[in-house]
Design a protein around this nucleic acid. Sequence first.
RNA 1: CGGGGUGUAGCGCAGUUGGUAGCGCGCGGCGUUUGGGACGCUGAGGUCGGGGGUUCGAGUCCCUCCACCCCGACCA
Length: 579
Amino acid sequence: MRMSHMFGRTLRDAPADAEIVSHQLMVRAGMIRPLGSGLFSLLPMGYRVVKKIEKIIREEMDAIGGQELLMPVVHPADIWKESGRWYEVGPELARFKDRADRDMVLAMTHEEIVADLTRQDISSYRQLPQIVYHLQTKFRDEPRARAGLIRVREFTMKDSYSLDLDEAGLDVSYQKHYDAYNKMFGRMGLDFIVVSADVGMMGGSKSEEFMAFSPNGEDTLLICENHDYAANREVAVFARPTVMSAEKLPLEKVATPDTPTIDALCKFLNITRDQTAKAVFFEGASGAFIFAVIRGDYDINETALRQATGETDIVPASPERIRKHGAEPGYGSPIGVTDAVIVIDESIANGYNFVAGANEPGFHYRNVNAGRDFEPTIIANIASAAAGMRCSVCGGELQEARAIEIGNIFKLGTRYTEKLKATYLDEEGRPHPVVMGSYGIGSGRAAQTIVEQSHDEKGIIWPVNVAPFDIALLSLAPATDTETSAAAEALLAELEAAGYEVLYDDRPERPGVKFNDADLIGLPIRLSVSPRTLANNQVEMKARKDSEAVLVDRAAILTAVRDRIEALRASELTWPTES
RNA sequence: CGGGGUGUAGCGCAGUUGGUAGCGCGCGGCGUUUGGGACGCUGAGGUCGGGGGUUCGAGUCCCUCCACCCCGACCA
């Protein structure tokens, strides 16, 4: 490819609306261009990266027996009504009507379609197991797109679906994906970890996320210092200190003026946060008023609370709603509230003599004890894990890390196949629902995540396996120097004949411009041809991640390039930390 | 959806008490230059986000709508 005719130029300044470094570099290097919020075009260079990523994905999917097909982006709403998600999923599912006034949706995922294909084409146990996959556009009307390709509304996803006879079969398919994902991300050079995760709107029994470390990540992970436990904070558990039994002291009401926060209360009464019971109020999707009580030094994990209450969604309750049930914001107490689902954390159930609100401004109770002073509806672990807490496996210290979710695998079970009546007949002729799993990777997000992890102050440093081209070839001579450009052209032809993808900078620019653009774009190998090198019959070679260039005899350049690229490729493979 | 911010040339930005729009980079032409984002001359490029209002006069003041970004909510 000649750079003089490459569509998409490099920018000296990043657009003001790009904040995180990978987003800025992708735009500056001419990989992507924004169209609207959460909508991006991939320019030729960026699309090359994505295609490299998708090639890796296809190879590893094919290696575990995946069969590639292609399902539509536009679906009749009927099938989403059949699965129930038409009603369950919120506004992120884009809905519209066609010309005949039929409800339609834009695909945000394809479980329904796979279940439909399954009921049409799978009828016997003899046809199972199966793995099918496609790379197809998804549209999710995200409440807030952000950070370039990291969180977009329209994107391409590799989603695969396993179809099995039973749970044991699903375990096998799931493990195949687990291993394949490790290989894929390892080949992409990503620094990642696998963590357990919430099943969310997908439903099912088990989910794990592949997480790439990045301070700009949207998720917080908790990882044991001894590497025997890692989880998304949404589902992370931690070891609780053993509580000694104590005598339950008599309930006592005390005046505590101007103490609506735990900190103010602790200061006023000269106690520590773990001696307080904090009340947090939510409203469930069912309309229920949820009164959560947790020790003052812990925070509520809303995912855990949602699961404990069986609510599909919970939102903070309004002060009006709180007072309607007899509670007082800032001075809330489970004692005396009415018509509420009282969920207490184990820290409260197992503790004694807490200070809690009195549902009256300026007053608290001392010596509040669950079971004696009030009856909890539900006792559950609803505390959010945080750095410094103890690992539930080994007791080591949990540490926090930010990460970007690059892949997600789910054991779905029969949720969709039961709803859509996708059954097979066993050897005795009895029908059973097919057991499903689903597995996703966003290729664009993966591309930008690689940049997030692999760049320096000058630009991107692409790993060989995903680089848009292998080699940047620079001709460093005035346009009038036909000798140098002829030598560069000859080298270009030789490299391309040897199978390399070369970006040839044939622009009439000064050397500084070409060097800077080469660093910004970040191809693995840079070759420079100039009168200076040609005088000694040499070519300059520099890997993007090397600090110094080397001069190579013109006759030996192909060998030198091959050796350097293969050395880079080998060194760039990454493998995950054990979870 | 709540909070905050920004919309002026392709990109980054300035624009004073209201007086008819500029700078840098980039882009075209000519010339000089050629190993880490050269220089000179010259030129093109603007519904100042949209609409309404106040005013003799609005990029600037008022109202309203829109878009985009950030934080939160949200998120397979």
